[in-house]
């Protein structure tokens, strides 16, 4: 195997759930305050995944106090305590940048209903 890939393999996190574009996520991040470390959670819609292997990042968008906020989080960072998938989204593209131009109810992603 390629040397770079084999080195990355040992550092890639395998404890995270399967994430899909459009999912509504709760990302629990470790925040350091002085000497203490606490968990801060950040909720939002997964609008893009970029990169592959160790350098993969996710872009999580939410509306906070009427302002759109997007956080780009490296997926393999130790700063992520855990990620919870709250609900799956029904989407038809890999990058949901169109949500940026929408307000209110139109800026929502339809929930994916699990069919038996």
């Amino acid at each position: 195997m390629d040397l770079v890939k084999s080195i990355e393999q040992s550092m890639i996190r395998t404890d995270l759930p399967d994430l899909q574009i459009g999912d509504f996520l709760k990302v629990n991040l470790k925040v350091k305050e002085g000497n203490r470390e606490r968990i801060q959670s950040y909720e939002g819609t997964l609008i893009a995944r970029k990169g592959k292997g160790l350098t993969e990042t996710i872009n999580v968008r939410r509306i906070s106090y009427g302002v759109g906020v997007e956080r780009i989080i490296p997926l393999n960072s130790q700063k992520i305590d855990s990620i919870e998938v709250i609900r799956r989204g029904q989407v038809r593209r890999a990058k949901l940048y169109y949500l940026r131009d929408r307000v209110g109810k139109a800026a929502k992603v339809r929930e994916k209903l699990i069919t038996k």
């Binding site: 390629d2 040397l3 770079v4 080195i7 990355e8 550092m11 470790k30 350091k32 292997g53 160790l54 350098t55 490296p74 393999n76 960072s77 130790q78 700063k79």
Partner: peptide, 19 residues
């Protein structure tokens, strides 16, 4: 030179590295 990737430090900082 084999290529580039990144490395995460204890504090979560991502460092670009060459393999």
């Amino acid at each position: 030179k084999a290529g580039m990737t990144q490395l995460f430090l204890e504090d979560g900082q991502a460092i670009p590295v060459t393999v």
